[in-house]
Write a protein that binds this DNA or RNA. Structure first.
Length: 283
DNA sequence: ATAGGCACCTGGTGGC
DNA sequence: TGCCACCAGGTGCCTA
């Protein structure tokens, strides 16, 4: 479930296991994910202290004491499993290795962090920390939706004159970072905008209205993720698994949740991906 | 430059 | 039980 809120939740969950700790051993079980791993990745990670875990869009960035930054992307199916005893409060054994455990970090605080990714759309790379933002994967990403650079004027400017459906425009990471299929659907529902509506057919006012809505949707999701994070320590440390209640996503043929709307949620396909929306109140 | 479609992968589900 | 079609949270790259 890795859109921005899920990635942020994973990052938060990794902090007690990794920040300030030394990577005692990095076990790399295959040569690549979406792309080949960087040269000698295991060796370059071993012995490094994780100074700080940051997030940019859907990427987790781990700044290391070696002047390098580990970039992690979860793709569609990537998971981070934490086992061991990072907080020193309980004793948890490490679970048996599972299929698709591609990279395993053993930390000097007893924590083990396992990157598991069945579909292997995820990625890892090592960047020079000083120039990390210039990395090709990061350089052309738009503003963080929860930061000051994402505002009404920005959205109007980047969308001006575009002929693309608003759904596609919001999925385009150059316009705004971190949105994925779920949260675009949810944001458009709240804004009462139909996903197929073309950007150049939307009033500036309606485009502006999307900004606080996007912020709210993401903030609420992060909050929900944060709360489910509590179980993770007591249980076995599975991150990135929670249930949200969505207004439209995954609710095809169910009743619209908008007040005073008796519509039914529909599913259409746009550029190969499902869009869920209410044809009655989203125009 | 921009818009749309494909490709990369595995696994789960539901129908026959 | 088997087989098949279809679906899934992303995104770089290729084509018009």
């Amino acid at each position: 479930m890795p859109e921005l809120p899920e990635v942020e939740t994973v990052r938060t969950g990794l902090v007690p296991a990794m920040e300030g700790a030394v990577i005692r051993k990095a076990q790399v079980n295959r040569p690549d994910l979406r792309w080949p791993f960087p040269e000698n990745m295991a060796e370059r990670l071993t012995g490094a202290t994780v100074l700080q875990l940051r997030r940019r869009s859907k990427y987790i960035l781990a700044d290391l004491s070696t002047q390098e930054t580990l970039l992690i992307h979860l793709g569609m199916s990537g998971r981070m499993l934490i086992s061991g005893d990072p907080l020193g409060q309980f004793v948890h054994d490490h679970p048996a290795p599972e299929k698709h455990d591609h990279v395993v970090f053993d930390m000097n605080n007893g924590a083990r962090v396992t990157f598991n990714d069945p579909r292997r759309f995820g990625a890892m790379d090592l960047l020079d920390t000083a120039t990390a933002a210039d990395h090709p994967l990061l350089a052309s990403i738009g503003p963080e939706p929860l930061g000051n650079d994402f505002n009404e004027d920005h959205l109007v400017t980047v969308l001006k004159g575009r002929k693309t459906p608003i759904k596609s425009a919001l999925l385009d990471q150059k316009n705004v970072a971190g949105l994925g299929n779920i949260y675009v659907c949810e944001a458009l529902f709240r804004a009462k905008i139909a996903p197929r509506r073309t950007v150049n057919n939307l009033s500036e006012k309606r485009i502006r209205s999307l900004v606080p809505i996007i912020r709210d949707v993401l903030s609420e999701a992060i909050k929900a993720g944060g709360s489910s994070l509590k179980d993770f320590r007591q249980a076995d440390g599975e991150l990135g698994y929670f249930q949200h209640s969505f207004d439209v996503y995954g609710r095809e043929n169910e009743a619209c949740r908008a007040t005073d709307c008796n519509g039914t949620v529909a599913r259409i396909t746009q550029s190969g991906r499902s869009s869920f929306y209410c044809p009655q109140c989203q125009r």
